[in-house]
Design a protein around this nucleic acid. Structure first.
Lengths: 152, 152
DNA sequence: TTCAAAATCACCCGAAAGTGTGAGGGTCAG
DNA sequence: CTGACCCTCACACTTTCGGGTGATTTTGAA
């Protein structure tokens, strides 16, 4: 894809070079500068400054080479409280409520307030919940519950 | 931002130009080409080919700026990183790593062990992370990170 | 070279979370 | 009635978190 245009540019460059050498020849006669080495000198000069220009341009456009495209993942949509998993794990109604609130990032105290029970009760529910989910931390519990389809 | 380096390159270019003109002068005497217009001619030639070089390089490197990086396969697995949200929140690379591990339900100590850093370092990262995500608990952080598409 | 951000780590402290044990009351099947 | 479960709560104890402050090193850009 880029090779074609690249070659085309090289072609253009080559033609330009040839053209300039012709003009150079002409000028050589025009100004009566017959010195044989002049054409070589001018050619070298042209090549050199072309290289310089290329180098300059590359240096200047260096920070321009970072454009990125990315894709987004769409996860399978399987929520709906999974009755299966609930029976499998033996999670009770109250425990499920605590689990759901915990999933939203609420603290034990906030859960307790919302369910009108004591903090210790919430802790007890969570303790049993952790055992039924076979985890030891709330973050793990949330992850597992989501994986099991117990919570969204 | 790039102004300094840009000026430096222009300076380099200017110096090179001056140097070449000096060499030019020397060559002028060396080859006994006393013609008055020659210096002007050579300078013009140099400028012209410099421009040509710049044009050439620009043309050649133009497709380089359109290079696209992409195609992340998506599964029910994890891994994806919303660049947008990351820049929005200003979350650093290391913070992202900590966040991802935390999402899996790991404790701070486990994260520290896995990243080969101290527990205090993990805490510091999390502290900054919570501020950037505008949350106060890890469960909330996980939820928000998921919502923002930072983690799976 | 210089400057700012990132990354690293150390203490300390209070709050929250997690663990173990025990216990009282309600429901419901056997 | 009794045993099995669930819901509730308490208390003590350990661990983990979260927040504050301050410091050093590394690194990348200006």
């Amino acid at each position: 894809m880029t090779s074609v245009s690249k070659y085309r540019h090289f072609l253009t460059y080559g033609l330009s070079m040839a053209l300039f050498l012709i003009v150079l020849r002409w000028l050589e006669l025009r100004f009566l500068i017959i010195h044989n080495a002049f054409a070589i000198y001018a050619g070298g000069l042209a090549l050199l400054f072309t290289g310089l220009g290329i180098w300059l341009a590359l240096k200047l456009t260096k920070p321009k080479t970072v454009i990125v495209e990315k894709a987004v993942l769409v996860d399978s949509a399987h929520f709906l409280a999974n009755e299966e998993a609930l029976k499998e794990t033996g999670i009770s109604q109250r425990e499920l409520e605590v689990l759901q609130l915990m999933t939203t990032g609420k603290s034990n105290q906030e859960i307790a307030d919302q369910l009108f029970v004591s903090l210790n009760t919430v802790k007890t529910h969570l303790k049993n919940l952790f055992e039924k989910l076979d985890v030891g931390r709330r973050t793990q519990a949330v992850g597992k519950a989501r994986k099991l389809g117990i919570v969204a």
